[in-house]
Amino acid sequence: MKRIAVIGAGSWGTVLANVLVDNGHEVTIWARKEEVSNEINNVHRNRAYLGEAELHLHLKADTSLKNVVFNKEVVLFAVPSHAMREMLTQVKPYVHSDALLIHATKGFEQESWKRMSELIAEELPQWGERIVVLSGPSHAEEVIKRSPTTVVVASSCQHSAELTQTIFINSYFRVYTNPDVVGVEIGGALKNIIALATGLADGLGYGDNARAALMTRGLAEIARVGTAMGAEAITFVGLAGVGDLIGTCTSKHSRNWRAGYAISQGKSLTEVLSEMKMVVEGVKTTRAGHALKEKYNIEMPITEQLYAVLFQGKDPKIAVEDLMSRGKTRELQEMAQGW
């Protein structure tokens, strides 16, 4: 049994905390709002994010970061990417010197475009090899029902990855390890761009052919960026790459897919974001992808067109036409160069 702190009482943080309690660990989750904390403790629900799904009776919540983090053996971060650095600075005084740090956030810091593990290493440098990322195809709405789910954990330290695997793995939550931190983080973040584009195309009625094309060519874009940043190409055919891409692009559980679909129906980006209760990471990640495209001089036509739709007012149908009318190329040659 481990003493574990979970930072973030959204859908994913709550569900991961529930998995850990199922596994016999002592888990306390930090909630920003008192009403959420009280509901988890007294009603064993988190209705704002998970409806009437029942939480484990032994899962505890608190609004005090000090109470949650102090003397814990494991600290798991499940907060939106834009909140990560702030949370790291706030928890730093309370983190035990031997704690294992895990994050389950898929995105980049705005403006710096740094990955989440880079932020953790900057703010908590003494924890070094005890930093782990958890990613993969895993909708909270299904994990809370204990539906079979597979994820991947990555760390520069094999021991840290294997310890995380041991902490999480059970009969419905299977965990694999991978040494490629960059690839796992890039795959988990950039797939949200393709999910937005897929939702948009689905809303326009383009069907299965377009969806398959977006997912396949989207994976090529993700791999190009990842390998340029030092990732291993093989990672992108695993759970954090094609696995997460399939899960996010084909499910109505996906908030990124839903956002793209809503935009296809004529809603503005501002309207869509104001109507959704949860963070749509793909919007910020589209900005990041566009910036990385420029930085590494990489062809990312799907990202480029989605950026124009989201932030420059381009008509989605025109964006699709522009994608389809690009110059001729050879698939295998392009893959060899990009991967």
Rank of each mutant, 00 (worst) to 15 (best):
A291D: 12
E299G: 01
V280R: 09
G282R: 11
I298A: 07
Q305W: 02
P301A: 08
M300S: 12
G282K: 13
V279P: 00
V279L: 02
E281P: 01
M278L: 08
T303V: 13
Q305P: 01
A288F: 03
L306V: 15
Q305R: 12
K284N: 14
A288L: 04
M278K: 05
T285E: 00
E281L: 14
T286F: 10
V279A: 02
L306C: 13
K295I: 07
E299T: 13
P301T: 10
L310N: 04
T285L: 00
M278V: 14
L310I: 07
V279R: 01
K295R: 14
A291K: 06
A288E: 01
R287M: 11
I298C: 09
G289F: 00
A288P: 09
H290C: 05
L310F: 11
H290I: 04
L310R: 05
Q305A: 14
Q305G: 02
E294Q: 15
A308W: 02
P301E: 05
K284H: 15
A308R: 11
A291N: 10
K293D: 01
E299F: 08
P301Q: 11
V280S: 09
V280K: 04
A291P: 00
R287P: 01
L310W: 07
Y307N: 00
Q305H: 03
N297S: 15
E281W: 13
I298W: 09
N297G: 12
V279H: 04
Q305F: 06
Y307D: 03
F311I: 11
T285P: 01
V283I: 14
V280T: 12
T286Y: 05
Q305L: 08
K295H: 10
T285G: 04
L292W: 06
A308G: 04
R287V: 01
P301G: 11
I302D: 12
Y296F: 15
K284Y: 11
H290T: 08
I302G: 13
A291M: 06
G282I: 06
L306D: 14
L292M: 08
E281V: 07
T285F: 00
G289I: 00
A291I: 00
L310G: 05
R287W: 08
V280Q: 10
N297W: 14
I302E: 10
A308H: 04
K295D: 07
L306G: 15
V283A: 08
L292H: 02
L310T: 07
